[in-house]
């Protein structure tokens, strides 16, 4: 079955989630991947959204973090102060799944403003949402975004959420309790932090994608892992499940998402 680079990205992100894990889900691309995992190899994956829905089991892709289908299918729904203070902050959650507008070589995330200065930016983005504390407190973090030199920069214009800060030792100095970004999954391949330098290096490429192509899509001098692997293409079963999930998101009669096909993962 032929597939798009976006489908490859979502499938690759979904594969990193294991059955029984708890996952704090950002909306857009991360949510699509997390829902795909729950629909395929990880039916016991616990999806947690910042709207306070814990253990949501949506049959269709939610369009927002506060869709009715999340509340109706959740194990429990708690208030917003509670989801952050009792559930996220103490480090109970295995993995945070986040999108980004910009990510830098140390895995720091910008979803606030690009260009100019903070008071008069060239592009004003939505802002932090739940991401800073998700990035700080989950045991590990996976970042999902499309790759380009504009989105992969040496240093983000604004640190909305901390990855590895300025490099080794930053997270410890800041008292951040989680381990930080474990991987960045793009539409070209997979980047992972070097355990010694904390710098993101290329560890996986998709079939048909070349290393120079990924380097061109990166705004710093991207290093390539000695163990660079080619990520296996999506299986027919993975693709079928993903397409079914997307179709359900557009047509599910009970879902408040019915009627729209617009996905704007890039802004979150």
């Amino acid at each position: 079955m032929s597939y798009t680079s976006d489908e490859m990205m979502t499938v690759t992100a979904a594969r990193t989630l294991r059955n029984g894990m708890t996952c704090f889900v950002g909306i857009g691309l991360p949510s699509e991947a997390a829902n795909l995992a729950r629909r395929t190899h990880a039916p016991g994956l616990v999806l947690i959204y910042e709207s306070g829905t814990i253990g949501a089991k949506p049959s269709a892709l939610p369009l927002s973090i506060g869709d009715g289908i999340l509340a109706e299918t959740a194990d429990c729904v708690v208030s917003v102060p509670e989801i952050f203070n009792y559930w996220l902050q103490p480090g109970r959650i295995d993995v945070g799944f986040l999108g980004a507008a910009q990510v830098d070589r140390f895995g720091n995330i910008n979803t606030t403003a690009i260009g100019g200065d903070y008071g008069a930016p060239r592009v004003r983005l939505p802002g932090a949402g739940g991401a800073p504390e998700i990035a700080a407190a989950c045991r590990e973090v996976t970042i999902v975004l499309r790759q380009s030199p504009r989105s992969f920069v040496g240093r983000v214009d604004f640190v909305t959420s901390v990855g590895f800060g300025d490099g080794p030792g930053s997270r410890e100095r800041l008292g951040l309790t989680g381990h930080g970004p474990r991987r960045v999954i793009t539409d070209l391949g997979v980047l992972e932090p070097d355990p010694r330098t904390c710098e993101l290096v290329l560890t996986g490429v998709y079939p048909g994608v070349t290393v120079p192509q990924v380097r061109e899509g990166t705004g710093w001098d991207l290093r390539v892992s000695a163990g660079l692997a080619t990520v296996p293409p999506p299986t027919d079963a993975e693709l079928a499940a993903l397409r079914e999930l997307r179709a359900a998101g557009q047509h599910h009669p009970r879902s408040a998402t019915a009627g729209s096909s617009q996905m704007t993962g890039a802004i979150r």
Binding site: L88, Y118, P132, L174, G175
Partner: peptide
């Protein structure tokens, strides 16, 4: 702010306290 920050700020207001304590914001430009 961040969501967690705003949520805690409301909770402090509701509790009649001048501030709330949390883990957050450290290392961010915010």
């Amino acid at each position: 702010h961040s969501h967690a920050g705003m949520a805690n700020r409301y909770a402090a207001g509701a509790a009649g306290l001048p501030f709330a304590v949390m883990r957050g914001y450290r290392g961010t430009s915010l």
